[in-house]
Amino acid sequence: MAMTAEQIQAMIATAIPDATVEITDLAGDGDHYAARVVAESFRGTSRVAQHKAVYQALGGRMGGALHALQLTTALPEGTSS
Rank of each mutant, 00 (worst) to 15 (best):
K52V: 14
H51E: 13
Q9F: 02
I23K: 11
T73W: 07
H32R: 11
T72G: 04
A5Y: 04
A10P: 10
A27F: 08
S41C: 07
I16R: 04
V21P: 01
M11R: 14
A68S: 14
T45Q: 14
L71V: 07
L75D: 02
T4W: 01
H67M: 07
A5Q: 11
E40L: 15
A74C: 03
A68Y: 09
E40P: 06
T73D: 06
P17A: 13
Q56S: 15
S81L: 07
G78W: 02
D18A: 14
S80M: 07
T73C: 12
H67W: 00
A68P: 08
D29Y: 08
I8D: 05
Q50L: 05
A35C: 11
L26W: 05
T79L: 11
H32L: 00
G60W: 03
H32D: 08
D29K: 04
A53P: 03
E77W: 13
Q7H: 04
P76M: 01
G59M: 04
T4H: 10
M62N: 09
T45E: 08
A13L: 09
Q9W: 00
F42A: 05
G30Y: 10
Q7S: 12
I12S: 09
G59W: 01
T45D: 01
S80E: 13
D25M: 07
G28Q: 11
P76G: 10
A57D: 04
H67D: 04
D29S: 09
D18W: 07
R61L: 06
V38E: 12
A19T: 09
D31N: 06
T4K: 01
L75H: 03
G78V: 03
I8N: 11
R61V: 09
V38C: 05
Q56P: 00
D25R: 09
Q50M: 06
Q9V: 05
L58W: 01
I16G: 09
T14Y: 07
M1K: 06
M3L: 15
T72Q: 11
R43Q: 14
A34P: 03
I12E: 07
V37H: 03
M1L: 06
A74E: 13
D25T: 09
A10C: 04
L71R: 06
H51Q: 15
Y33G: 02
P76F: 12
S80A: 13
R43F: 02
